[in-house]
Amino acid sequence: MIIKINGKYYKIKKIEKNPNGKYTITTENGKKYEFKNVKIFSEEELK
């Protein structure tokens, strides 16, 4: 799965839903981001 952050695309390693309704997304390079609204892309959609 792929996520778009600030115009760049990252591969997703893990998605966790937090009790506060936000999502914590861990990218393949180990960085964590927290979002309220998340749009996930499949690799097929990006081709």
Rank of each mutant, 00 (worst) to 15 (best):
K4M: 14
G30N: 06
Y9N: 04
G7N: 10
K17Y: 10
T26I: 11
K32S: 09
L46P: 10
G30T: 00
N37V: 11
T27N: 02
Y10I: 12
N29T: 10
N37C: 15
K36Y: 14
G7A: 03
K36Q: 13
M1I: 11
E34M: 08
K22W: 15
I15G: 00
K8A: 08
F35C: 15
K32C: 09
K39P: 12
K4F: 13
E16R: 05
K47T: 11
V38T: 04
I12N: 00
K32T: 14
K32P: 01
K8Q: 10
K14Y: 10
N6C: 12
K22A: 14
K11D: 03
T26S: 02
I15H: 00
T27A: 08
K47V: 13
I5R: 02
E28L: 14
Y33D: 00
T24E: 10
M1H: 07
T26H: 07
E43D: 10
V38K: 04
K14F: 11
I40G: 09
K17F: 09
F35I: 15
Y9D: 03
Y9R: 03
P19Y: 07
I3S: 01
N37M: 07
I25G: 00
N29M: 05
K47A: 13
I15A: 03
E28H: 12
N20M: 05
F41G: 05
G30P: 00
K36N: 13
K11G: 04
N18L: 12
K36P: 11
E44Q: 10
K14D: 08
T26E: 10
K32G: 02
I3W: 03
L46A: 09
F41N: 03
E28D: 08
K36S: 14
E43G: 03
N18V: 03
K11A: 05
E44A: 08
E34T: 14
Y23L: 10
Y9T: 05
K31H: 11
T27Y: 04
Y10V: 12
K14V: 10
K31E: 15
I25Q: 00
T24A: 06
G30A: 01
I3T: 03
F35G: 04
I12G: 00
I15R: 00
I5D: 01
G7V: 01
V38F: 07
I2Q: 06
Y9E: 05
E16G: 03
K13M: 13
K13Q: 12
E16C: 11
K22L: 14
I5S: 02
E45M: 11
K11M: 06
G30D: 07
E28S: 12
P19I: 12
K4W: 13
E45P: 07
F35D: 02
K4N: 10
V38H: 05
K17C: 13
N20I: 03
N6G: 13
P19A: 12
P19E: 13
Y23V: 11
S42E: 07
K32E: 14
M1A: 07
E28T: 14
F35V: 15
K36C: 15
K47D: 10
K39H: 12
P19G: 11
E45I: 10
K31G: 10
N29P: 01
G30E: 04
K22H: 13
T27S: 03
M1D: 04
I3G: 02
M1F: 13
T27D: 06
K47S: 11
V38R: 03
M1K: 08
T27E: 01
E28W: 11
N18K: 11
T24F: 07
I3R: 01
K17H: 07
T26C: 02
F35P: 02
I25E: 00
N20D: 12
K4Q: 13
T26L: 07
N29W: 05
Y33W: 09
K39W: 10
K39Y: 10
I12H: 00
N37A: 09
G7K: 04
S42R: 09
P19S: 12
E28N: 09
K14A: 13
Y33P: 00
E16S: 08
E43N: 04
I5W: 06
E34H: 09
K4H: 08
V38E: 04
I40D: 06
I2H: 12
